[in-house]
Design a protein around this nucleic acid. Sequence first.
DNA 1: CAAACATAGTTACATATGAAACAAAATAGT
DNA 2: ACTATTTTGTTTCATATGTAACTATGTTTG
Lengths: 177, 177
Amino acid sequence: MPKLTEPETDTKEVIGIESETPDAPLPDFELESFFPYQVRVFYSDVTRALSAVYQRDYGMMPAEWRTMAILGSASGGLQASEIVSRSSMDKVVVSRAVKRMEERGFLTRESNEADGRSFLLQLSDDGRAAFEDLAPKLKAVEQKMLSGLSAQEIEGFLAITRRIRENLADELQGVID
Amino acid sequence: MPKLTEPETDTKEVIGIESETPDAPLPDFELESFFPYQVRVFYSDVTRALSAVYQRDYGMMPAEWRTMAILGSASGGLQASEIVSRSSMDKVVVSRAVKRMEERGFLTRESNEADGRSFLLQLSDDGRAAFEDLAPKLKAVEQKMLSGLSAQEIEGFLAITRRIRENLADELQGVID
DNA sequence: CAAACATAGTTACATATGAAACAAAATAGT
DNA sequence: ACTATTTTGTTTCATATGTAACTATGTTTG
């Protein structure tokens, strides 16, 4: 069932090791020192600290908070597609977040004069109140997690994330996203 | 701890002001420059580049790959609980990953002499073969994403993730994990 | 010993997610 | 104008996930 892609170079055959090798090549692979794993552990702590707040105070999910954050700092009404592009979330995720937020009275959907397919989204008064309550709290969490770090260190850190993302750019071409 | 209720501001409608711009405090919150958001975008690229490989080649999920990685570099058989502690994954996640890997013939479960509640897990020959195929491929992805970065830069980066996690340590106490 | 408690792992349930199919409206090609 | 294609957003379906309940075994304590 595994549709294995052909191993390009099979050193075993070249060297001529036959059948079961008790002295297996045993790739020395330490998960805990594997960079992507460390990134995941880091991310998981960061996101958990953050979502704990909007989750606890407003029962919101990450996608809802991000939608709120974008609408909260926007001037007029936004289309869902604009939220998609500004949040790097999937359009399905945004669609569902918007739906849930409308049900909970956090945003309004007006039909769009200029384009009958889309709607203009805006925070309702309740939504804005929640945003104004949450934004400082979440900024405080951000401050807390960054405390003791210089602006230079933070910028250096982010610069490295950008370089890594650039390194991965063509790796990720296949995945359309 | 506010629970979903904030005082409604109704002063405007009472007087009937139709001001287009209410004198809202309007927290200046830019999602795209919000540190946790940037971390998420970064993480999402890293993890996607990686999972693309074991997903494509073996149809594995992240939890399965991590389980494989830990078993692959372990000497004898491990209990599921050891995988949990070494992978920072939930025990339910590990349980399901183990189940699926056993179904697919990637690992074996022997009952544990020393403790009737647990089992000793080990990669099967197939599992080991998959691991030996995958480990170098994934290391290559790691190399690719880190290319152009000095060991010093990488260590500095990781040091910052550790400091941030320490800053968050008490924030995360509430969440038992 | 036996009742109480703790631990390992699984299962159930409710919910979240991603991929792909879909409908409706807009745009392009001829 | 008419058909094809693209874009916008929703829905469907199959699968993944987290929380809590559960089973079974092991440990502690009176």
